[in-house]
Amino acid sequence: MHYKKVKGILSSSNGMNLYRGCLHGCIYCDSRSDCYHMNHLFEDIEVKENALELLDASLKKKRKPCMIGMGAMTDPYIPLEDQLLYTRGALEIIDRNGFGVTLITKSSRVLRDLDVLKSIQTHSKCVIQMTLTTYDEDLCKILEPNVSTTKERFETLLTLYKEGIPTIVWLTPILPFINDNEENLRGILDYCIKAHVKGIICFDMGVTLREGN
């Protein structure tokens, strides 16, 4: 882990990543690709030291309501979040400034911040997006070794539904000859039905296979 001060935190589409790099170890990870110009080892997490200060300043200047996005490149709930609390801090800033939020994660750690998510939902919109790829738990632990298993993520989705937080599932990637069978897809879709997810996103078959991936 290392810290870096950055000049800005929100993209033009109101997305942000508080961290760069990851320890989940997913074998299909696209964020490792050279096209993202990461100049440090992927497992050496870069923490954007002044991110929360920049976020607060940016939201105070915004005139129109919007949703702030997190997790497009790095999961907001990597293990370091347990100590650093950057994601929770960002959610509290978003809540305090009256904005909505959506985030993508593979971690049941999101339930730690359920109180803030529910608070955001009272004045704006809060949507949690959860990746589900592999119904078989043993295979899941091979493809995504250092993260909540698919069953744990399903149970997280179920809790979020019961607490009034809408959810979306990313059914991606579907890997040819690995998790592209009917049993796998039906198992995940059954989880989606039981968890009352609001939608499913799927980007066809396969992975990018970009340089560095």
Rank of each mutant, 00 (worst) to 15 (best):
D30L: 04
C26Q: 08
L23Q: 06
C29G: 09
R20Q: 09
M38D: 12
L23W: 00
I45Y: 00
F42V: 10
N39C: 11
N39M: 13
C22T: 01
L41A: 15
D30P: 06
C22W: 02
C22S: 10
I27H: 04
Y36V: 07
M16P: 03
Y28Q: 08
H40A: 15
C29R: 02
C22F: 00
S31M: 12
G21R: 00
E46K: 05
Y19T: 03
Y19M: 07
R20H: 07
Y28E: 09
G21D: 01
S33G: 08
Y28I: 09
C29T: 01
L41T: 05
R20K: 11
G21F: 01
Y19G: 09
C26H: 02
L18N: 05
N39S: 14
E46C: 11
H24R: 07
M16W: 01
C29M: 08
M38G: 12
H40I: 13
E43M: 12
H37N: 15
C29Q: 03
L23T: 11
H24D: 00
D44S: 14
L23I: 03
D30F: 15
C26I: 03
H37D: 15
M16A: 09
C22Q: 00
R32H: 11
H24N: 12
G21T: 04
L41C: 11
H37Y: 13
R20G: 00
R32W: 02
D44E: 15
C22M: 06
H24W: 02
I27D: 01
D34C: 06
E43T: 15
G25H: 07
D44P: 09
Y28C: 09
N39Y: 14
E43Y: 12
E43K: 13
M16N: 01
G21P: 01
F42D: 04
S31K: 02
R20M: 05
Y36L: 12
Y36P: 02
C26K: 04
Y28L: 10
E43V: 14
C29P: 08
L23S: 06
Y19E: 09
Y28F: 15
I45V: 10
G21H: 03
L23Y: 00
Y19Q: 07
S31Y: 07
C29D: 03
C35A: 07
L41Y: 09
F42Y: 15
Y36E: 07
L18E: 05
H40F: 14
D44M: 11
G21N: 02
Y36S: 05
S33T: 04
S31I: 07
Y36F: 15
D44L: 12
R32I: 04
N39K: 15
D44N: 14
S33M: 10
H37V: 08
D30G: 07
R20Y: 03
